[in-house]
Computed example of a mutant assay.
Amino acid sequence: MKGCDLILSSLDTFATREGDPAPGIYARLFAAHPELEALFLMDTDGGVRGSMLQQAFECLIDVAEGGRMAGVVLGAERVNHESYGVPDNLFDAFFLAIRDSVKASLADDWTAETSAAWTRLLARAGQASYR
């Protein structure tokens, strides 16, 4: 199976197993970077978190499929997040939390090949979003 197919398959399995992935992904992100949780104090209904996660998934899929939309969106969002005091390494931490949540959900179905595909995907997503 090629990298794009592995990414899409892992995301599909993740969605099937997890239902709403937002709580788990954000719990993982905030556990690793508690300072980020304060940025969401006004997001009392989870709408901002849900929107950010949806956009992140769309960008990851776009990168996996070789699209061009993600580079523009992620570049703009890096600049936007700088205004909130989010440095690049913490911006990227969100994508690591997504990957780690997918990996935990897939458990024994997460293979070395899947891991390598995600490593390539996250590297491309990071490169695509730099100005």
Rank of each mutant, 00 (worst) to 15 (best):
A56W: 08
A56R: 05
F57Y: 06
F57V: 10
F57E: 03
E58H: 14
E58D: 14
E58C: 05
E58S: 09
E58W: 05
C59R: 00
C59D: 03
C59N: 07
C59A: 07
C59H: 00
C59S: 08
L60P: 07
L60Y: 07
I61P: 03
I61E: 04
I61D: 02
D62L: 06
D62A: 02
V63L: 07
V63K: 03
V63D: 00
A64K: 02
A64V: 01
A64I: 01
E65T: 10
E65M: 09
E65P: 09
E65A: 13
G66H: 03
G66L: 02
G67A: 12
G67F: 08
G67K: 09
G67W: 10
G67I: 09
R68D: 10
R68G: 10
M69C: 05
M69R: 13
M69D: 13
A70G: 02
A70R: 00
A70V: 04
A70L: 02
A70C: 11
A70I: 02
G71V: 00
G71R: 01
G71L: 01
V72S: 07
V72I: 11
V72H: 03
V72G: 04
V72Y: 09
V73Y: 03
V73Q: 01
L74H: 00
L74S: 02
L74R: 00
L74N: 02
L74Y: 03
G75R: 11
G75V: 11
G75S: 11
A76R: 13
A76V: 06
A76I: 06
E77H: 12
E77F: 14
E77K: 15
R78V: 04
R78I: 11
R78E: 11
V79T: 10
V79I: 11
V79A: 08
V79Y: 14
N80G: 15
N80F: 14
N80L: 13
N80C: 15
H81W: 15
H81N: 15
E82D: 12
E82I: 15
E82C: 08
E82V: 15
E82S: 09
S83D: 06
S83Y: 11
Y84V: 09
Y84H: 14
Y84Q: 06
Y84A: 01
Y84T: 08
G85K: 00
G85Q: 05
G85H: 01
